[in-house]
């Protein structure tokens, strides 16, 4: 592991029981501290499998994952204390209010009542949800739920944030609010792994890209340094299509 690398994935392989092909195969990459790392790829490329493996929720068949210099296989619980994850699903209790949801997750992170109150108030304010603190999540719009989903991952002030489609199904205003907040987190030194289908969004946000297809890493680096970009692709979407082809991957 180099000095600035926060995550080091080496030779990762995962094949699910009954599957013919591995979900990820011989995947290696490094995430540097303070980066917003774009994990991109078409459906079935292996992005979610990679994220689950990074969170220690997946038994891998081969390879190694080191986060904060710790092996995920041996120190999974310790690593999970330092990372925040906003899954693609709205991982909240719809029948609880925004405050009750966050207070519960805060308790589960081991925070005391005063800290929870202070952080929840602050985060709800930042994400424009303070007025909705006592409203049940079931009555929230898609954008509000998505913002709250992100807040729940930030309560314990993680050093590494893993986001799976964090702006999926949200309106323009909510998207801007989320992306601006992510950039402010990056400025504070938080490292972010960002997985999305929205390539224009990724292009503006991420400082480093990894493009997966059929479980394999097919390109990585800074956008301007990618050879394909130099060979004529004008933006990330063109590069993506050039690398992965136009065949649908349903």
């Amino acid at each position: 592991m180099t000095d600035s690398s926060l995550i080091q994935v080496s030779g990762l392989r995962k094949i699910y029981r009954g599957a013919e092909m591995p979900a990820v195969d011989n995947l290696s990459f490094v995430v540097h501290e303070g980066d917003i790392f774009g994990l991109l790829g078409p459906n079935g490329a292996g992005k979610s499998t990679t994220i689950m493996a990074l969170c220690g929720l997946l038994k891998i068949n081969a390879g190694s994952i080191q986060i904060f210099g710790l092996s995920i296989n041996q120190k999974g619980a310790e690593i999970r204390k330092l990372i925040g994850v906003a899954p693609q699903e709205i991982a909240l209790f719809p029948m609880l209010t925004a405050y009750e949801n966050l207070a519960y997750f805060g308790r589960m992170y081991g925070l005391d009542r005063a800290t929870i109150r202070q952080r929840v108030d602050h985060l709800l304010e930042d994400f424009g949800l303070k007025e909705k603190a006592k409203v049940r999540v079931a009555h929230f719009s898609g954008g509000m739920k998505r913002r709250l989903n992100l807040i729940a991952a930030l309560l314990h002030r993680p050093r590494l944030l893993i986001l799976d489609e964090p702006t999926s199904g949200v309106d323009v205003q909510s998207r801007k609010m989320i992306l601006d907040y992510l950039l402010s987190l990056q400025a504070e030194g938080v490292t972010i792994i960002y997985s999305s289908h929205l390539l224009d969004e990724a292009e503006n946000l991420c400082s480093w890209f990894s493009i997966l297809d059929e479980g394999r890493l097919i390109a990585e680096g800074k956008l301007k340094d990618m050879p394909a970009m130099n060979s004529g692709s004008r933006n990330l979407e063109q590069l993506f299509l050039e690398l992965t082809g136009k065949r649908t991957r349903d």
């Binding site: 929720l57 999974g76 619980a77 310790e78 999970r80 899954p87 589960m108 991952a153």
Partner: peptide, 16 residues
């Protein structure tokens, strides 16, 4: 809770 994802979030919280 498992299907909606809140259980996944709880699993991601160490010691929960």
């Amino acid at each position: 809770e498992r299907e909606e994802g809140s259980m996944l979030r709880l699993r991601l919280i160490a010691g929960s």
